[in-house]
């Protein structure tokens, strides 16, 4: 509702004050451009979607594997946790050109960038989930003679699932951003490329079309994850088994 209201105000303003399209196009202009030139940019859209999905998939796997390793090997955690945080301090904008220098213009540097932005929220959230395992349940499992592996598979992992999903949700939105940023720096197709082209030729309406699709893509990802989450942990209750 708020979004619709904002759009109406925006539309009204741009008509009332006759703002030139290259400065700020009205929503209706943007939609028109989006519909009429679909054939021009749709391959960009698919390319970015593919890139995000692949990068996201790898990012999630890396995030989960890293979290599991750090959790099961406490000395490794102490050694590598600061490194993990540092990896998030390097501005992507600086790192991306470097990756292009090292790995060329192909898929690899782009996927590396997406993975780098995606894995961190998952690792942190998953580690927290593991650590917050209910001490009572852990105690029971130990008394019952569960092995370390059983404790992990039957208790810690399922217990961490909600946390994992919050990490995955954050990553899902990051992945599209990561894909677009990686495309800015050297690609022949993708929303990022389309955006740069539109920008340099003052086609502001196209920039907005691109922004619109980034948003839609993010929402779509997010929605899918939420659906999956409901499916997997629908029956849970935060009350726990006390």
């Amino acid at each position: 509702m708020v979004i619709i209201l904002l759009l109406i105000i925006w539309e009204a303003c741009s008509r009332l004050f006759v703002i030139p399209t290259w400065l700020l196009p009205a929503p209706s202009d943007i939609v028109k451009e989006g519909v009429t030139s679909w054939s021009v940019y749709n391959h960009h859209l698919f390319s970015t979607t593919k890139l995000s999905v692949i990068g996201f998939g790898i990012g999630v796997s890396v995030g989960l594997i890293v979290a599991t390793m750090l959790h099961l090997l406490p000395p490794v955690r102490q050694a590598f946790y600061p490194l993990l945080i540092l990896s998030q301090n390097i501005p992507i904008i600086v790192l991306a050109p470097l990756l292009v220098i090292w790995f060329g213009f192909g898929m690899l540097p782009k996927i590396l960038i997406i993975t780098l932005v995606c894995f961190f929220p998952i690792t942190v959230a998953t580690l927290d989930g593991f650590r917050q395992t209910s001490p009572e349940l852990l105690h029971y499992m130990q008394m019952a003679g569960a092995s370390k592996r059983q404790i992990f598979a039957k208790l810690q992992f399922p217990h961490a699932l909600p946390s994992i999903f919050s990490g995955v949700k954050i990553s899902a939105t990051y992945s599209v951003m990561g894909a677009v940023i990686s495309e800015w720096l050297g690609a022949n197709q993708g929303i990022g490329v389309y955006m740069t082209l539109a920008q340099s030729s003052f086609r502001t309406d196209r920039v907005f079309v691109a922004i619109g699709f980034v948003m839609v893509l993010c929402l779509l990802f997010f929605g899918l994850i939420v659906m999956l989450e409901r499916l997997l942990i629908k029956s849970r209750n935060t009350e726990g088994g006390k």
């Binding site: 009572e136 208790l155 088994g241």
Partner: peptide, 12 residues
């Protein structure tokens, strides 16, 4: 075989 003070059932 052990029955703890709190039931310690797995909520999921």
């Amino acid at each position: 075989s052990y029955t703890p003070q709190s039931s310690s059932l797995f909520p999921w």
